[in-house]
Write a protein that binds this DNA or RNA. Structure first.
Lengths: 344, 344
DNA sequence: TCGGGCATCTGATGCGTATCAGCAACGCTG
DNA sequence: CAGCGTTGCTGATACGCATCAGATGCCCGA
């Protein structure tokens, strides 16, 4: 009662009340093997004193001393809660949270990372025991530093940077693309065109690889064309048809508007989808207005988040080590834009 | 080169390289007023050394020493990323992240808080400089401990627990309810019924208060009825109409299904909405299938998040003190379920 | 020449915990 | 009773940084 402003209690206070040393309190309240060598009486008295004082360990001090915070970092290169693409980010977060909660970790969300000058900001993730990275950007030098220091890092999404030394949980675009191609083959198509964008993102290349593999496996004719959305028009479409193509696959509608351009071109050319020509996307389709249900495949986003967090925890605890790379297989989404090829 | 396993650099390393003391490095790299009394040359040499070594301050140590982490806690009593009600939580998070990023704070998300036994888990929020709370639940004893210790806490949503000592940024349900009532009055309705659920949530009571105030101000006849969704049927609806009621307002469709029950009852009773009777909700309507655009009001969720985080930062930095309570006014949403009353 | 004031910088200390070497007391064996 | 292993606990230290009371050297006025 003499002290009006009471500090929150620390181990020293508990120790004083229980009549033992601070070291004993630390041992008694902790989980170290040394705990076994304390007498039952002492354990009890310490526990009682701690409860009486409402003692709660200071996570910061614990981390400084023991090098572990039970925190997983989540680093995004845009807002963690983007408004535009919320549908694509949210499931990752859901999965991450699930795993983290199940494994007893809390989440440290780094904000405003895009605006902060210099890549050095990345280093602050070290507050957490390990860190998940979301988003396309890869600050190589910074990550290199983290890796060199043995700091556990896991990307959500496949990354080939840093000489393949990055751990990740990604989506198997090759398998996904193959599913779509197989679906078309099953419908009877024999000549397929893959229209891809002009950038060289890993996922883009993977899609093409999956396309070729499946085309070869199914004994189809295939061709690939790189294009800008603006270069796709009715005339292009007609020339493809003239060359025998009955189905076109393309990338998802993320940044490039290939899919939208194809739909528009089909409309302009009076080509009915899917009666005259089938159309599919090697990925998900979003952001289209109106939104036709386009055939494609769905990324197992939530599962990716879960697996990534679980992997990170394994790396943190040492249950797994080194570079670990996982690919999850997407699931085929059959929409309204694919059907049998038109009769020859 | 002798050291293969290189620790990450600390201030002592920077100090050695720059030829100054660790204390000087701390001062030079920090923002304390003492920094002004360092020579330009020293500042420069320290900065250079730090850059050379890739020094990044250890946030944990910083916190332990300076009692500040630049972290805002976010404590939810369900999943932080709920799957069912994502639409209602997400905007809060968006706002919170915005403010936090703008003010230079990162976010600490506590997970699995619902499952962890005992309320003591709440105490771990202290890792952060202050903490936001989302959700209905209020663990009074635990919060009391935090408040007693002078720990900054802000609720998102109005809370009257703990003798009104909780700071919050909430929605002004009174004003929102009044907007809806005024809207109905403007359409020509003169006799209104408010069907409310059976719980006594603060928001529920606020709605009723707003209802009564606006009814009185507009000189209307009003009545209130507490009901379960299951007790609302065609007969009840007919009896209300018989008593002269031309518009019914109710709570949002969150947990209780009052709104859904009313719509179903109207259908059963062959009462056309809004021709025969207007229907509005004192809040938002979601989760209805099919989803009619019901007249109601929208909570400024994102703004609430932003303001709550900004308030929390003010409390953390001492720019504001004590209990601060803010209410934001919702905006009227005119849907398809309200219209002029039927001719008498 | 000396005292005093200023500009710069440093040594020492504390933050709250975990860990480890080691100490004291005790029982046991030979 | 000396010697030794065990049990149960403590003292000291480290973790990396911030802070503050000085220490040091310097210039100026008296």
């Amino acid at each position: 009662m003499t002290d009006v402003i009471r500090r929150r209690p620390r181990q020293a206070d508990v120790a004083a009340l229980a009549g033992v040393s601070q070291a004993t309190v630390s041992t008694a309240l902790g989980t170290s093997p040394a705990r076994a060598s304390l007498s039952a009486g002492t354990l009890e008295r310490v526990a009682l004193a701690a409860r009486t004082l409402g003692y709660v360990p200071d996570p910061v001090a614990r981390r400084l001393a023991a090098q572990s915070t039970d925190l997983l970092g989540v680093y995004t290169f845009t807002d963690a809660f983007p408004v535009e693409v919320r549908d694509s980010y949210y499931p990752f977060l859901v999965g991450i949270e699930r795993s983290a909660a199940r494994l007893g970790y809390d989440l440290l969300l780094f904000t405003g990372t895009s605006s902060s000058r210099g890549g050095e900001a990345v280093q602050k993730v070290r507050l957490a025991d390990g860190c998940l990275f979301l988003g396309r950007h890869v600050p190589e030098e910074q990550l290199q530093q983290l890796l060199d220091a043995g700091y556990p890092v896991v990307y959500v999404g496949r990354r080939t940077e840093l000489g393949g030394r990055l751990s990740y949980v990604g989506a198997d675009y090759v398998a996904g693309a193959a599913q779509v191609v197989d679906h078309l083959a099953g419908l009877g198509h024999t000549a397929l065109l893959y229209v891809r964008g002009t950038d060289d993102a890993v996922a883009s290349a993977d899609r093409e690889e999956g396309f070729w593999r499946a085309v070869a496996a199914a004994g189809l004719r295939g061709q690939v064309q790189r294009a800008y959305a603006s270069s796709i028009d009715a005339r292009a479409l007609q020339s493809w048809r003239a060359s025998g193509v009955t189905a076109v696959v393309t990338e998802e509608n993320d940044a490039n508007d290939l899919l939208a351009a194809l739909l528009a071109a089909a409309r302009d050319a009076d080509v009915a989808v899917p009666q005259d020509m089938s159309l599919a996307v090697l990925g998900e389709c979003g952001g289209l207005e109106p939104a036709p249900r386009v055939t494609g495949f769905a990324l197992p986003r939530q599962q990716m988040g879960e697996d990534a967090a679980a992997l990170l925890v394994d790396l943190v605890t040492g249950r797994r080590t080194g570079t670990v790379q996982e690919l999850l297989v997407p699931s085929l989404l059959v929409g309204e834009t694919t059907g049998p090829p038109p009769p020859a």
